[in-house]
């Protein structure tokens, strides 16, 4: 039944629209307004529901170019996932450890991971970039970035 990519996405969007609609119908009502807060969301929810049907039953066949676009080798998916993992760790410790250290670590490791071999340049950039950015933001512009464990 679920053969084409469009059908799969259609199904996901259908579920999304359904959840959104359920939530819309649970919005509390407010008595003193002509058009309440739930009207537009309900409309949007139903619209997406209809669109998901359209997509599901659409006869459009994926072009080769489109197929090629989403054909990503397994190994590359893993690489992407790792990059996202690194960003996640970066955000996780962003305030705790501080902008400068985390950014330096992040730039160094993610550049290296993605295949940047010149480790000396890498090291220099990953230290200088956050330090300079930090100085500009904090000292020149008065915008506080998390200092974390560093004294300044």
């Amino acid at each position: 039944m679920i053969k084409t990519m469009n059908q799969r996405i259609g199904l996901i969007l259908f579920l999304l629209a359904a959840v959104y609609l359920i939530l819309s119908y649970q919005l509390p009502s407010y008595p003193y307004t002509a058009v309440d807060a739930d009207v537009i969301p309900k409309g949007l929810g139903w619209f997406l529901l209809v669109l998901s049907f359209f997509l599901y039953f659409s006869k459009a066949i994926e072009t080769d170019a489109e197929k090629a676009k989403r054909a990503i080798p397994k190994k590359e998916v893993l690489v992407l996932a790792s990059v996202f993992g690194m960003i996640f760790v970066y955000i996780l410790f962003f305030e705790l450890i501080g902008f400068v250290i985390m950014t330096a670590i992040f730039i160094f490791f993610s550049s290296w991971f993605l295949g940047y071999e010149k480790w000396k340049t890498n090291l220099a950039v990953s230290i200088l970039f956050p330090v300079i950015l930090y100085c500009i933001f904090v000292f020149a512009l008065g915008i506080v970035l998390p200092k974390g464990i560093l004294p300044i």
């Binding site: 893993l78 690489v79 790792s82 690194m86 760790v89 450890i97 250290i101 985390m102 295949g115 464990i149």
Partner: peptide
């Protein structure tokens, strides 16, 4: 090799986290 890098990165940050936590404490 690259996966090792990520692992290292995560271990390193985790280490720092623990270290600072105790410092903070």
């Amino acid at each position: 090799m690259k996966q090792l890098g990520t692992l290292l990165f995560i271990c390193f940050t985790a280490f720092i986290l623990v270290a600072c936590n105790s410092n903070n404490a």
